[in-house]
Design a binder for these strands. Structure first.
Lengths: 237, 237
DNA sequence: ACCTGAACACCGTTCAAGT
DNA sequence: ACCTGAACACCGTTCAAGT
């Protein structure tokens, strides 16, 4: 009746790999705030302290979980790669970042964790390295590539943080804005018109379309600069 | 010898305003993670529970602190406003977002809090409304303005989250990258060249210059689209 | 109405002890 | 080497009690 306390076949040996996989699963299903040492241990059929034998604490778990996501990203980018000559570096970079996005959409917590613990991990560096390689092969100078990485910002990893604009279905945000329509007339007018035009989405914004719009704006700008046709920044220096 | 317990002249009456101001001070000086109910109360010479009579808990404090920062932003944007006709909407938007940036640089925690608790507050809506107004007056359609807001992303509020690239003086990131130089050859080569060229900053990147580069890239792209000269996004739809 | 002290339900983590 | 239980030092917050 009493369960065998250790070396049970129903509880395979604890492993760094198993710990991190389960951490990703929890974050996917319930968000990072639900990813606690005690819950993670519990789901693995173990005590919280046992985890410390396989990972360097909570921080190590977050870093390791992100690294698993970045492995997924690398795999997705490989399978959806575009032939280099087929539209040039621009199409190749575009395809890679859209592939990255499909992975990040499966792990919405990953961007937040990457932002909070911004260290240059191997997985992140490899992704950036691939993009740098594509741009360089396309004839961009390292200097322009460098500016380009900054201009891409978080779009580099397939997402763009949406601040200030309510998401599709954000009823609370919609109500709040409606309540202050007379205080923000331009914004209210814009949203009224856009919401009316764009019946394809439930709410106001099609995140995927907006991501691609912003991405193309940056890639087009870089392409133009690479060709030397015009200078960005006539305002200052 | 014993201090008067209440109505002491050295302890002015607790007020929502005083609570929020002190919250901003703590976050500025020690980061958001140092902003706890107990510490905040302590610095105000009061018990933690007293705060609940003036704010709606920790969340209300964070929201209120951000709102104070946005008030500062509005004031800074007003004083550095550019005449509308002087370079058109582009220069006016540019000036406002650079003004926003100077404020956000004084409160580096604010972007994180805004991202974490993304509700459309009055202060945020007013800032966005001003930008929409400038663009609209410049002749952009509401539809283009809407896309433009998404493309600007967090640059709207004067910052751009830097993921994956070590900051200036990030020795740990530098060491990490040096250790995997052979695994990320393009990235290593780029950084070696850029670091050599750019002797003006201590580290690799001049954040202000990169912010302006990205901002100008987006504004130029929008301006070009408004003039109808070329389409962004030849890749898809 | 405003403020307090004790307590509750959580965190991540250290430590000494088990096998 | 691996896992455990109790404990520590924190959190935000509820509650009943004070003035």
């Amino acid at each position: 009746m009493v369960e065998a306390p250790v070396a049970d076949a129903s509880r395979p040996r604890l492993t760094r790999e198993r710990v991190l996989r389960r951490a990703v699963d929890i974050a996917d299903a319930a968000g990072v705030e639900a990813l606690t040492m005690r819950r993670l241990a519990d789901e693995l059929g173990v005590e919280a302290m046992s985890l410390y034998h396989h990972v360097r604490g909570k921080g190590g778990i977050l870093d390791g979980a992100v690294e698993l996501v970045l492995d997924e990203l690398a795999a997705a980018a490989d399978t959806s790669a575009v032939p280099a000559q087929d539209g040039g570096w621009r199409a190749a970079v575009r395809a890679r970042l859209l592939a990255a996005r499909t992975v990040m959409l499966r792990h919405p917590w990953a961007p937040d964790v990457m932002a909070a613990r911004s260290v240059m991990t191997l997985g992140a560096a490899r992704h950036v390295d691939a993009v740098v390689g594509l741009m360089r092969d396309g004839g961009l100078s390292y200097d322009l590539v460098h500016h380009g990485l900054h201009a891409l910002g978080s779009r580099m990893f397939g997402f763009s943080p949406e601040i200030g604009e309510p998401d599709a279905g954000d009823q609370q945000g919609a109500d709040a804005l409606a309540g202050m329509a007379e205080l923000v007339p331009h914004l209210a007018a814009m949203l009224a018109e856009v919401a009316h035009d764009d019946a394809s989405t439930l709410g106001w914004c099609d995140d995927q379309a907006e991501f691609e719009f912003g991405l193309d704006l940056v890639l087009d700008g870089l392409d133009r600069l690479a060709r030397g046709s015009s200078a960005a920044g006539d305002g200052r220096g």
